[in-house]
Structures are given as C-alpha cells and as structure tokens.
Amino acid sequence: MKKERTYNDSIHAFGSVWSALVLLVLLSTPLLFCIRYDVWPSLSDVWNGLWPVALITYPTAVVEIVAYTPLLGSGGMYLSFTTGNISNLKLPCALAAMDTAGVKSNSEEGEVITTIAVATSALVTTMIMAVFVLALRPFIPRLTDPSSILSPAFKQVMPALFGALGASYFSKHWKISIVPIAVLTLIVVISGSIGTGVLIPIGVVVSILGALLFYKLKWI
C-alpha cells in the first residue's frame, strides 16, 4: 500500500526546493555583477576575506540549526534560514506567536503557527526595508543619527523585545530561569564582547541541564 504523504514530508520537500532556489538567486547576484562589469576578483582575495568570517559563521550556522530545530517547526526553519535575522527577529516572533496562540512547538498546531509567524515577519521586514531604502532614504540617517531623539530607542530594541517576550516565561518558570540567566551573565561578565550567536547555544544547553537537575531534585 502506498504510504500517504504527510504535511511534514511535503514541507520538507517544499523547503528543500526553495532552499536550492534561494542558493541559486544568492550566488547569481555577485555572478551577474561580475559578468555585467567584466570584473573577476582573485580567488586569494575572496579566500582571505572569507576564511576568518567562515571560521565563525559556518560552525555557528550548524549550531544554530541544531539549537533552533526544537523551537521552530519545519516550515519556520526553512523560511527563517533563507530570510535571515533569526535570533533577533524570526525566532522571538515565532515564540511570541506560539505563546499567544497557546500552542506548543513540535505539535501540529505549533508547526502551522510558527510558519505563519515567520512568513508574516519575513514579508513585513522585506517590505519595510524596501520602502525605507527606496522612499525614505534621505531621512533614515536623520532618524538613526546618534543625535536623533529616537536614537536611544533603536539602541534598546533587544532589551525591549526580549524583556516583553521573556516576561511570561520568567513568571511561569522562574525557578528554571534563574540558572541560565545567572550563568550567562557570569560568562558575559568574564568575556564582555562574546557574540550572541555563541551565547544562545550555551544558554539552551545550560537551561535544559538546569531544568533536568531541578526535576530530578523534585524542585519543579
């Protein structure tokens, strides 16, 4: 008997096709530029620029894929990794959406809600960027200039975003929250400029281990 194709199977096929298409579009941008202007950078220059960054971004990408898989559904994962700005936008947006809708990640409902949230967020971000870049270009530097009245708000987007997002989790799971916040703050005190991309996987592991320990000790 032919096995029925599930939504999960179809979203993986869908996501794989789109990933390949995005890769094609992505690589064609510099290629078309080179063809149009007949300029061909030396491989050594590209390599010298690439390796110090890739040394960080490639392992980070792998760690991010592992860390975000339990949080985002399949559709949310494919779309987040092709549209970018995951930790600072797509992931918190998906978490907030699941929280409000009262659904859990790794459930059928969670899969749908995260995909809708990430897709909406990607559409809005892309449109906002296009509008600002095309229409409001002359005004943007004034809005984001350090002397602008709005400047402090732009600098504090992350504390505002994660404070609001964390509030309900902290109040519901305050015991679990103490360990990761304390450990990560200590790490940042020791190494102040450590990247958020490195901190997130550490935070997820510390938090899960802490929760397991508390469970074993019957504190939660």
């Binding site: 949080l71 994660f162 799971h173 679990i176 935070g203 938090s207």
Partner: peptide, 19 residues
C-alpha cells in the same frame, strides 16, 4: 519544563547582554 527551558536559554542570552 524542557520546552520552556529551551526558550528561556535563548532569551537568557539577550538578557545577559543587556545586564
């Protein structure tokens, strides 16, 4: 608890940066 812990671990990274 584990699902919540994964979320909290992520959020904690940004809280630690803000602190």
């Amino acid at each position: 608890a584990l699902a919540a812990a994964a979320f909290i671990g992520l959020i904690a990274a940004f809280i630690a940066k803000a602190l």
